[in-house]
Design a protein around this nucleic acid. Structure first.
Lengths: 110, 110
DNA sequence: ACGTGGTACTCCGCATTGTGGAGTAGTGTG
DNA sequence: CACACTACTCCACAATGCGGAGTACCACGT
């Protein structure tokens, strides 16, 4: 009940877009950046799935790049659609998070 | 993609608990209070479902009360478990929302 | 008398999406 | 050679919000 996995619903898209705004990244890297940002409970499969979904939706570009420290890496980056989606989603999040925070504080204000 | 219906996942429990903290309420009333608080897109079925779920989980008390303006009303109220759940969930939300907000602001800070 | 609209709730099936587990594969280390 | 870390894929599952249909009660207008 009110687990992080449920809180993530819908917001993971936004988090991934935000991370990619700061530079192209591949799945494993995006995962590490999200966890470093405070989203410790994100599962790897969720990130890979989200990247695939956003790519299929036309919000991301994608290209392979070999690595010297392991397997190939599939890089993703924001395109114009992705940046617009990020902007719209950020607004929605701000409205939503603002409403929630106000709701949680209401008692103290009274 | 990043619709409010997805943002609500998991958070609706918290929103309903917060609304009930300010006084017992019945489904239709909780719905109106949530919408007044800024969560305009909440569907009625979601609220009724959430109330039933929280009650089944032992976080709410429930009692019927007749109304003079329509059908009977099923009131719900927080019990001790509900208040504790609300406290824990609020902490989780604060951590989560804080991380997200920081993530969304990261670029401006750089 | 009848339809309409607001109130109040229930049930059903669906769609979305995050997750765990298993599997594949490359690299470096003890 | 086993193990750990990197890197990704696929699958079946579970949770949950939603739309739609249905029930019912009340008040108001015509």
């Amino acid at each position: 009940m009110v687990e992080t996995s449920q809180l993530l619903k819908g917001v993971l898209d936004l988090a991934v877009l935000a991370v990619l705004r700061d530079g192209d990244g591949y799945g494993y890297d995006v995962l590490r950046r999200l966890r470093a940002a405070g989203l410790e409970d994100v599962a790897d499969a969720s990130v890979y799935g989200t990247l695939r979904r956003l790519y299929a939706a036309g919000a991301l570009t994608s290209y392979m790049q070999p690595s010297e420290e392991g397997p190939h890496r599939k890089y993703y980056g924001l395109n114009q659609d992705g940046r617009e989606l990020l902007a719209r989603s950020t607004q929605m999040w701000n409205h939503f998070a603002g409403s929630m925070s106000a709701l949680l504080l209401a008692k103290e204000a009274a």
